[in-house]
Write a protein that binds this DNA or RNA. Structure first.
Lengths: 206, 206, 206, 206
DNA sequence: AATGAATGAGCGTTCATTCAT
DNA sequence: CATGAATGAACGCTCATTCAT
């Protein structure tokens, strides 16, 4: 509806809204076009198919996360500061992009290869070597120096990611289980970050 | 296709297969019926609608988890054994029911209320008080006795659940990130459980 | 639901209720069976098909009208008493059988041959010669004797039937057109009969 | 099938054919589309549902009658000319639109509110006051002036409408009852109009 | 670049009917 | 006679996609 705006962006935004709530299968092309204020045929002109649009949505949002992580990784840090800063980075990012995590979860459940491949190619675009591998190496190094109490970098990474992302998906169930509404406020997320950092430091630092 | 089998169970199983891969929106009634070896109209005879079938699938699988957790909770344990046994319980269960976690993730992303409500009603069926709350109380008690280093039961529960479940969804991404295939073997899951237990104990026990 | 009742009658009654409101196409076999308190397969046992049941409903109700008319016709009457009594007979009958007129109207509109043929065969069952023809003859006779001001028996019969039956179908439209509710009371139907009789006598008697 | 024709009109016409023979419940969307020579989805593109199409059919044909009646009513006439001209108007109209009367009858029998409401709204569109009421008023006036032998305008209107419309529905039964085929010729309808006019004048004029 | 109309395959659902017991 | 389960052929409707302009 808004004028003077690149229709591609308009469409991508509308599609993100749609797909993050209904998934690829549940998302409706008509609705996306209508919300974007463009003719339905334009979606096909720009993105050639519903699936193409979906992938582009995924890519465009996902790619925003990479540079943040890259910047973080490149800085020389101690394990302690690493474990203190990574949760804040991830949780902060997903808090600002709640739709992305739903989108990724949906895609992981239905079509794991799509998002994995995309993820992989994004990583390769940005770093000469895999980002995860470079984190991995860093962790492996720390581990061999006796700076960490666990020595499998993959398990450590899984633990970190689990603690930082799962909540965004599980929030509604947590609310039901604990019979209370969790407010979208800084206070809560500070507590969340604190809890994760505390767990990681207590569990990983010697 | 198989004879002498309760068609209701046949349908539920086929539906689980379908929905856990494609979601409610992406799942096809025809395919479910065909795979179950029954006439499509039977789905409606027994479950009245696609959504009804979906909910029944969710319920029938979800309800298998509850008694396990209940049994675990009811036993008087020390924090230490609690943190040692819960990850094995959850990870073991989801390893045997990999489709359920996808199903729940899909549903949480697209329709959080359905699965939350179902979850809540299942909890209420089984326990006089909410299961989560009773775990919560136990944790709160331990916390007040100085047996745990964190004092927000909800954060602790989120941490535990995150560590135990997220991997099953994120596995394909982890494989890509680390450029290796993770085998479905006992060895790997033992490592996973170990890592989680170690993290929890190191992070939570004094 | 009622016990100790001939299920055939139960079914016919339930079917009348259904078909007179929804028509043959709109009527549902399941609903008929449920309302009749019998298993659906029984309908087919007794009436062999939905259409067979429909025809039997039509026949069983329609046939109640014939003897009344026959009795009326057989009595030797003057045109005056004929015109006074026929409207009361018809309007009285349809008032007690409001579902029949809807049923016949529905069938006449969608499948004129069915009800016409049925009508014809019912007439033949009861009278050696067609009932209508015998009325016709009577009217023709009166007409030739100068006792009536119109001489086409068919037009006269159409007029009589129109005046006596149309209202039962058109009632809802009349209510809307005149912006008032027409009560199902004796008073109104007396007025109606009076109006018809007055019109017929004024228009037909010399 | 015909080219260069507004598909909306094509659909409406095909739908009229279908619904007037089978009713709303019995009419088939596929058949309507096929006969109209358009894709089935177009019905929904233009009319949003089967019922929406049905109502539009009803409305589009019904609305043709109103102006004729309005024009007739607005002219200042004597009761005599009124009773002479109204039957010709109605019978002439329905003779040219035989499908409409079946359509209305079907709808009155199964769903009286739909057609009544439509009728009412059409009347209101065209006349500041209800058409029927304005006829009513005219009749009431005449009646009070002693120009008519009956004084209930509603009964008079019911009589007129009955005499003019019922035949079109009952024709097949009349044919069977009188064991003859009624030809669709001017001669017959002239006789019909004559008979109605004669009856009305004889019965209503002083 | 942009639109409204069109399309065909397929969707969830229903229904009259039949079968096994 | 009576039942619950089963069936297959539609049915009304939707959707991603394309076409003509």
């Amino acid at each position: 509806m808004k004028k003077n705006v690149d229709p591609k962006i308009q469409i991508l935004d509308s599609a993100m809204e749609e797909f993050s709530q209904l998934g690829l299968a549940g998302g409706r092309v008509d609705r996306i076009a209508k919300r974007a204020g463009v003719n339905k045929a334009m979606l096909y002109y720009y993105f050639h198919s519903k699936e193409g649009l979906f992938k582009e949505v995924l890519r465009s949002h996902f790619s925003q996360l990479i540079p943040l992580v890259v910047a973080e990784i490149r800085e020389p840090v101690t394990p302690q500061t690493f474990l203190e800063r990574i949760p804040r980075l991830y949780i902060g990012f997903f808090r600002k992009n709640p739709r992305l995590i739903r989108l990724v979860a949906l895609n992981l459940a239905t079509d794991p290869k799509v998002v994995s491949t995309l993820f992989s190619s994004l990583l390769n675009e940005v770093t000469p070597e895999h980002l995860a591998l470079s984190i991995s190496n860093k962790i492996a190094l720390w581990s061999s120096q006796g700076l960490l109490r666990q020595n499998d970098p993959m398990q450590i990474m899984i633990n970190i990611l689990s603690l930082c992302t799962f909540f965004f998906l599980a929030k509604p169930m947590v609310e039901v289980a604990f019979d209370r509404t969790i407010p979208e406020c800084d206070e809560f997320y500070e507590k969340r970050i604190e809890s994760v950092v505390s767990l990681l430091k207590g569990g990983l630092l010697p």
